[in-house]
Amino acid sequence: MEKRVRKSEMSQKIILLGKRIEEIIKEKGLKTREVAHDADMDVENLRKYIKGKQEMKVSTMLKIVEALKIEVKDLF
Rank of each mutant, 00 (worst) to 15 (best):
A39K: 02
S8L: 09
N45C: 03
N45D: 10
K63C: 09
V35P: 13
K51A: 15
K28Y: 05
E34C: 09
H37P: 00
R20V: 05
M61S: 04
Q12A: 12
D42E: 11
K13A: 09
E34N: 13
S11I: 11
E22H: 14
K63A: 12
L62V: 12
K3W: 07
V35I: 15
K63P: 00
E2A: 11
I24N: 05
V5N: 04
G29I: 02
K51P: 03
L17G: 00
E9W: 01
E34A: 14
I15M: 05
V35A: 15
K51C: 14
A39W: 03
S8N: 08
A36K: 07
L62D: 04
F76R: 11
E2T: 03
S8D: 00
M61D: 00
A39R: 01
E9K: 05
D40M: 12
V72P: 12
K73D: 04
V58P: 03
D42N: 13
K57N: 08
R6F: 07
K26C: 07
L62R: 02
R4S: 14
D40H: 13
V58L: 11
M1F: 10
L30C: 13
D38V: 02
M41H: 01
R47L: 10
I70F: 08
K63Q: 08
I50H: 05
R6Q: 07
K48W: 01
E27K: 04
L17W: 06
K51T: 04
M10N: 06
K63R: 14
D42S: 04
K31C: 14
Q12F: 10
K31F: 15
E27G: 00
G29N: 14
R33H: 15
L16H: 03
K7A: 13
E55Y: 04
V35N: 12
L46G: 08
K28F: 07
I64K: 04
M10S: 09
G52S: 03
L68G: 08
K63D: 05
K53L: 08
M41Y: 00
K48D: 05
K48M: 06
L16E: 13
R20F: 01
V65Y: 01
I50D: 07
T60S: 06
M41W: 01
K57H: 11
K57S: 13
L75G: 02
E2M: 09
L75E: 04
T60K: 03
G52K: 00
A36T: 14
L30A: 11
I25P: 04
D38G: 13
E44P: 00
S11C: 02
M10K: 09
R6M: 10
M1I: 14
E27M: 07
K57R: 12
L68N: 11
M61N: 00
V58S: 09
V58C: 02
I50W: 08
D42I: 09
V65W: 02
E27T: 03
A67G: 05
S8E: 08
A67D: 05
I70R: 15
H37F: 12
L30K: 15
N45E: 09
I50A: 07
A67F: 06
M56R: 07
K73N: 09
R6E: 07
M61Q: 10
T60E: 05
Y49T: 06
A36S: 11
I24S: 05
E66S: 02
K51N: 10
K19V: 01
E44C: 08
Q54S: 07
I64H: 08
Q12V: 11
E22V: 01
D38W: 03
I15T: 02
L75Q: 02
E71M: 10
D40V: 13
L68R: 08
